[in-house]
């Protein structure tokens, strides 16, 4: 049952759910690129609330809604409005759901998505809650993997970078755990290791392992993430933890492997890699519109 459903965490997605989103995303792809028009969300209003900076995700949701004939309302700075006056998220959502047919929100507090969804009578979509989850990113990541590798089952996916605070890798790992014979390989600086409780939970349903060095040779998908400087108290530790995928490093990758990144990148991927046929991060980013169109359509109309 999609109509009215909240999208809070990949922990609540079955393989069938994911496959339904991916199938509809494929149908949406043409329209997402501005070819054709299908106003199935005409008359519907999407409210976007981004309590943390976002260009990519916010634009992607806005475009998705507009491409399907809907309207978007939102404030770029919800912090400067009622939240700054001390209003609770709960109360703020009570206003927003009266003004919209669906809500998309990014918020720095973990669990804020569940809290907001409980307050809302209209479908709620989590666009990132602290370091916890970013389910729509995981769905567009899966879509990209399926599109590029023609399958998800049986793949070895290497997650690199900030695996502790990176919500995109958390959501992606849960999504991948629903597929057959997938191997999730982790490599990160010691301070930014994948959360132990997630590791223990995922181990029940998927092959997951940490590797001590950045060995790219076994991976079918290399998923790089940004290491944020502000995570380190000591700048020398940051310098030691930073990594760069350059032409030399990716030389060790399989010929048919792909490189992904949730973007924005800083220095993790050298620009020389952009020209490599295995670099798929810009395609991945573009796929976000079709996937979000599919999700918006599903939660607002059920199809």
């Amino acid at each position: 049952m999609w109509k009215g459903r909240d999208v809070i965490t990949m922990r609540e997605f079955t393989r069938k759910d994911m496959e339904e989103v991916l199938a509809l995303s494929e149908k949406m792809e043409k329209i997402s690129r501005g070819r054709g028009y299908d106003p199935i969300l005409k008359g519907k209003i999407l409210a976007t609330l981004f309590f943390e900076p976002s260009t990519r995700t916010m634009f992607s949701f806005q475009t998705a809604m507009l491409r399907l004939g809907g309207t978007v309302i939102g404030t770029a700075e919800p912090k400067s409005t009622s939240a700054a006056k001390g209003e609770t998220l709960w109360d703020m959502i009570k206003l927003v759901h009266e003004c919209s047919d669906a809500i998309v929100m990014r918020h720095p507090n973990e669990g804020s998505a569940r809290r907001a969804a409980e307050s809302s009578d209209v479908p709620f979509i989590n666009a990132g809650d602290g370091s916890n989850q970013h389910p729509t990113q995981a769905l567009l990541d899966l879509y990209t993997i399926k599109q590029q590798k023609k399958k998800i089952d049986g793949l070895n996916v290497l997650l690199l970078g900030d695996l502790k605070y990176g919500r995109t890798v958390h959501s992606l790992a849960y999504a991948l755990s629903q597929f057959e014979d997938v191997t999730i390989t982790l490599h990160s600086p010691a301070q930014l290791r994948f959360p132990a409780w997630m590791y223990a939970e995922l181990k029940e349903s998927v092959k997951i392992r940490e590797i001590p060095s950045m060995d790219l040779s076994q991976a079918d998908v290399v998923y790089a993430t940004r290491i944020q400087k502000e995570r380190f108290a000591d700048p020398t530790e940051y310098a030691q933890s930073a990594y760069v995928l350059d032409a030399e490093k990716i030389g060790t990758m399989k010929e048919d492997a792909i490189i992904m990144h949730p973007l924005p990148r800083v220095d993790e991927i050298a620009t020389e890699v952009d020209a490599d046929k295995r670099a798929k991060y810009f395609r991945q980013e573009a796929n976000g519109i079709a996937v979000r169109m599919a999700l918006l359509s599903l939660v607002m109309t059920g199809r």
Partner: peptide, 30 residues
């Protein structure tokens, strides 16, 4: 940084008694 420490009532669920495993229904952590 769980939202339940800022507003509302904290809600946790006991998933396993021994050894004890408790999950926050908001931030999902165990």
């Amino acid at each position: 940084i769980c939202i339940s420490n800022r507003e509302g009532t904290p809600r946790l669920r006991v998933e396993q008694q021994s050894p004890l495993k408790v999950r926050c229904e908001y931030c999902e952590r165990v």
